[in-house]
Amino acid sequence: MNQLSASQAIEETCSIVIDGKAFAKRLRGEVAEEVASFVADTGHQPGLAVVLVGSDPASQVYVRTKMRQAEEVGIASFQHLLGSETTETQLLSLITLLNEDDSVDGILVQLPLPEHINESAVIEAIDPAKDVDGFHPINVGRLSAGEPGMVPCTPLGCLLLLQDRLGDLSGMKAVVVGRSNIVGKPIGQLLLNANCTVTTLHSRSRDMVAECRRADILVVAVGLPEMIGAEHIKPGATVLDVGINRIENAKGEKRLVGDVDFDAAASKAGGLTPVPGGIGPMTVACLMRNTLAAARQRSHTSVTGGGKTS
């Protein structure tokens, strides 16, 4: 009896897991096919330039992953590794050259930057048409207005997973925990554009537990390990955990966890992304998607799927 119960529990948990890794693999396969078709039609290979300033280990890993996946889908990759002593003027000069380089369709400057460099100035220097991160104020404005433009990769990945899982999101109550410019604000706007009723919660919000429990869709992006528990979740809700936190147990062993207590949330949620293997893989896959979209836009061809999330 106990063995059967344990087996049923495992099966039930697996059924609610939203496998971002598998979805991202399918998305990269689709992008690879479309890149090959684009090259055949135009004779131009989409190009992605990634700029890394300094030697942050995590950033180095991210850059290598992006370069590898770009090559796997047929996108030319241009890597610019700059020392931590690089000045803001030098970095801006490189961006100007990349803006003018016709072989480069997408420019990504890996964040965070060293403290002596103004991130806003760097982001604003990137040609909005090549801003595959979707951080330029012009692209932020287009998203807010519901107009076509580059959409930040992590929020776009969240939206694609939700649409794949739930279909039409119209009328659903969505709660976003976190209001960062990189995730919280843009995912809220994407959900609003998808006709959800959206509430954004943050450090000054009152009665967060009750607000979260109203959500059909709960997106958590605050950077606090396992802060969301079963008490926050409406039965059957779909929960996307964007957080990535490295914690250490009493034995000094380190592991990655999200902003959601996975085991607790699994007892209530109807769908739940794991950490790792949930949103993370979608971010890089959507970067590839955005680079292809930028190449199409620059060559005046139509963007597959058209519209607001291209």
Rank of each mutant, 00 (worst) to 15 (best):
E71A: 11
Y62F: 14
V209Y: 05
I233K: 12
E253P: 06
V122G: 09
M288F: 10
G307I: 04
G305L: 07
A76I: 00
A221W: 05
L92E: 12
R142T: 02
A6P: 01
E119H: 01
T238E: 14
G184L: 05
T197Q: 04
L143R: 00
A265L: 03
S205M: 04
E12P: 00
I117F: 10
Q163V: 11
V51R: 14
N181R: 05
D102T: 10
S310T: 09
D101Y: 08
L81R: 12
N193M: 04
T309I: 08
P274W: 09
Q8E: 11
L94D: 06
R68M: 09
L201D: 09
V31D: 06
I247P: 07
P128H: 10
G149Q: 03
N99F: 05
V140Q: 04
R26V: 11
L160M: 11
L192R: 06
T273Q: 01
V177T: 02
A70S: 15
I107N: 13
M172L: 15
Q79G: 08
E85M: 10
P186Q: 10
V104T: 08
L161C: 05
T154N: 13
A70D: 14
I75P: 14
N290W: 01
K254D: 08
Q110M: 09
V177E: 01
A6S: 11
T309Y: 15
Q60T: 15
S37T: 13
D207P: 08
E30M: 03
N99C: 08
M150K: 04
S310V: 00
S180E: 01
A129M: 05
E253L: 02
T197L: 03
G184H: 05
R165D: 03
L192I: 01
I228G: 06
R298Q: 12
G54S: 07
S7W: 11
G277Q: 07
Q3G: 07
R246C: 02
S299W: 04
T273W: 00
N290V: 05
V239F: 05
P112V: 04
D133T: 01
T200N: 03
I126P: 05
I187S: 00
S180T: 06
H44R: 10
T154D: 15
G178D: 13
S5C: 06
C212H: 07
A58T: 11
C14N: 14
R214D: 09
R213G: 06
D102N: 09
M282F: 03
R214C: 04
R246Y: 01
V132L: 11
A237F: 08
L98V: 05
G258E: 12
T200L: 02
I16W: 10
G157A: 06
P235G: 14
Q189F: 00
I75E: 04
A49E: 06
R165H: 11
L48G: 09
V209W: 04
V260F: 02
Y62D: 13
R28A: 12
A76F: 02
G74V: 02
Q79V: 05
K185D: 00
S84G: 14
